[in-house]
Computed example of a mutant assay.
Amino acid sequence: MQHIIYTYSTLEVWAVVSGYNPGRIYVDDISNITAALVWIQGQSGFQLIGDPQSEPFMKELPAFMRTHIEPELAELTLDSVKNGVQDERWEEVLRNMADKRELSSDNQHVYRFHSPQGTEHVKGNEQANNDVQLLDWNAVQLVRVDSALMHDLKVANSSFLEDKITYFWSTVDDFLKHGFGYMLVHEQNNEIMSICLSGFVAGQAHAIDIETVEAYRNRGYAAVVAKAFVEACRREGLQPYWDCSPDNTGSIRLAERLGMVFDFDYTVYWYPLSS
């Protein structure tokens, strides 16, 4: 399996194969693996890796998906099958999987620091610092999401954080063992405003996931928690990993403001579950 993922760049695949994040791995031939289908829990989707010309996958994967995988996705109330690829030669297999259903596609962008820890970028970013200065720190508290916090979490919307963690991780304890995060808490309202945490982890790389409670959106809070997360990565020798769609201009601008630069892209294909 390692000989396949060494040529594959997406962190989500590494996280599942390494056993940090939950998922499943289906291979073409257990005695001679040349291709694999990786189910990634935190994305509710799959990634195809290895040889797109794998004969078992070309002949058997479409029927396997329809018989075994798609019924399970339907039970999860998903409306489409999503597959990420870095080799567009997979399109033939994907068209066979979609059969008569429409196959759509789009790109995903990945941003990283090109310097080892991005130190010069984060330190020199005045705009990100200004976001922090604009907050009323008498009403807002920036806190690190760790074991001490989770064991003494007393906010009205604690389920917001717990649901976000278990979307990516098997348990909260798994997250606390391998990942971390930051969140803004409105002290007067006693509720979480915005969070940024490790969605996927593989080695020293941490995929960033950010979400702001709807009532607090479009106020720059995401920039504050993202900056705290990225600076913690810098201090601790970790590598932040930012994955977003090319039409999410707000996310791209924020990544660039934090000093991250475009690293690579990959293609996501999807087709509807129903015919």
Score class of each variant (00 low, 15 high):
3 H>P: 02
3 H>K: 12
6 Y>E: 14
16 V>M: 05
17 V>Q: 04
21 N>Q: 06
21 N>P: 05
23 G>Y: 02
23 G>H: 01
24 R>V: 03
31 S>C: 09
36 A>E: 06
43 Q>K: 07
46 F>H: 04
51 D>L: 04
56 P>N: 06
56 P>V: 05
57 F>K: 01
59 K>A: 10
64 F>D: 03
67 T>P: 01
67 T>V: 12
67 T>K: 13
68 H>E: 14
69 I>L: 15
71 P>S: 06
79 D>I: 15
79 D>R: 13
89 R>K: 15
90 W>Q: 03
90 W>D: 02
94 L>Q: 08
100 K>V: 14
101 R>Y: 07
109 H>Q: 11
110 V>K: 04
112 R>Q: 10
114 H>F: 13
119 T>H: 06
120 E>D: 12
120 E>S: 13
121 H>I: 05
124 G>P: 11
126 E>I: 12
128 A>H: 03
128 A>V: 07
131 D>M: 10
132 V>K: 11
135 L>W: 05
136 D>Y: 06
137 W>R: 10
139 A>T: 14
147 S>W: 07
147 S>Y: 11
152 D>Y: 12
156 A>G: 11
158 S>A: 15
158 S>E: 15
159 S>N: 14
160 F>I: 10
163 D>L: 11
165 I>P: 06
166 T>G: 05
174 D>Q: 10
177 K>G: 06
178 H>R: 13
185 V>W: 07
190 N>L: 13
194 S>V: 06
194 S>C: 15
200 F>R: 05
203 G>F: 08
205 A>G: 09
220 G>T: 00
224 V>R: 00
226 A>M: 01
242 W>E: 00
245 S>N: 05
246 P>H: 03
249 T>D: 08
250 G>W: 01
251 S>W: 02
263 D>A: 14
269 Y>G: 04
